[in-house]
């Protein structure tokens, strides 16, 4: 079989593999909704102040809430397929619209975080591995150990105390300064300025993770036979490190970056609520406060699907980077 045909088959196989997981997640979401006390009609009645039992029964019939569970599940599956995630009674808007409004800031935060965390993590891991057991290695290891143990929300608050309140270098919250009516590059600069502290906060934890991973990966690769071969051929040490070892050592870091996206979404709930960053995490925090379960479940579902999608993409990228994967 040719390489492209094999790759296409692998991609199709991975796509098919993720379908049951997606369905399972949607079903889980449905049952979580059932677990919660009270349904949408109770919420509506609560909002209205009072409602007669007859009116509530009528509403239940209208929403299909009097149907057997299996039919409700089928309807829910169908709705989710058409991206209908229900209605948020607090915001008086469909959940999908609310989410769509908030996706962009979160994506912006996550992309900048992954870039910083992977970039610096790879760099620090490399420096640590190259100066094994020197003061540089020790300092980087201690730094990784400490950031790995620090709660994100606390780092965020401390950064605000130091850099916003005392030094006044960065804004404390929000994504842009609406009062200034910036346009064009001024607006981009303003958003970037607001982005600095949230990105540093969110990337610290992952920075620690990638640093440790990169260091371990470099050390593992440095002991492989191909390094000995390269050395025997007379390849310079620098070339061995930066061309041979570095490339191979990057592979686990790439996979890890994919695996960590789920955790990153969780972290963004905390970071966004600390910095009032108007993304999905902040929306989840607001939903939590107003007990808007429909909205919370919608965000949860979307983030789970996002993780499935990212894992898929990472696997495919990985297989192009390392053709050995497909054989197994």
């Amino acid at each position: 079989m040719s390489l492209t045909a094999r790759r296409a088959r692998y991609v199709v196989k991975r796509l098919l593999q993720s379908i049951p997981i997606v369905i399972a997640i949607v079903v889980l979401n449905f049952f979580l909704l059932q677990l919660a006390e009270g349904d949408a009609v109770d919420v509506l009645a609560g909002e209205a102040g009072s409602a007669t039992p007859e009116y509530m029964a009528e509403l239940r019939a209208k929403f299909g809430l009097d149907q057997p569970l299996s039919i409700q599940l089928a309807v829910y599956l169908k709705n989710v397929m058409f991206l209908d995630l229900g209605y948020s009674f607090r915001h008086e808007m469909p959940v999908s619209e609310l989410i769509a409004d908030r996706v962009l800031p979160t994506v912006l935060l996550m992309v900048s975080t992954i870039t910083i965390a992977v970039g610096f993590g790879v760099f620090l891991g490399l420096v640590a591995a190259m100066g094994l057991n020197t003061w540089r290695d020790t300092a980087i290891s201690i730094f990784a150990l400490i950031t790995y143990a620090t709660p994100l929300f606390w780092v965020g608050l401390m950064l605000i105390v130091v850099f916003s309140l005392n030094l006044g270098w960065f804004p404390t919250s929000g994504m842009e300064n609406f009062a200034m009516f910036y346009e064009g590059w001024d607006r981009v600069w303003d958003i970037a300025h607001h982005l600095v502290l949230p990105t540093i906060t969110l990337s610290l934890f992952y920075l620690a993770l990638y640093t440790r991973l990169m260091r371990a990966s470099m050390l593992e690769q440095a002991g492989q036979d191909y390094v000995t071969t390269a050395r025997a051929k007379g390849v310079t040490e620098n070339r061995i490190m930066f061309v041979h070892v570095l490339r191979n050592a990057l592979l686990p870091v790439v996979t890890m970056a994919g695996v960590q996206v789920g955790a990153l979404i969780g972290g963004s709930v905390i970071v966004e609520s600390v910095f009032a960053w108007p993304g999905l995490g902040m929306l989840a925090f607001e939903a939590l406060f107003s007990r808007d379960l429909n909205l919370l479940l919608g965000i949860f579902l979307l983030s789970a699907l996002l993780v499935v999608a990212v894992n898929l993409v990472v696997d495919i990228v990985y297989s192009t980077l390392d053709p050995r994967i497909e054989v197994n």
């Binding site: 997981i21 789920g262 993780v307």
Partner: peptide, 11 residues
């Protein structure tokens, strides 16, 4: 696969 912290919040 499920993002664990959001799942914990939800539960």
């Amino acid at each position: 696969t499920i993002p664990s912290f959001i799942f914990a919040i939800l539960l």
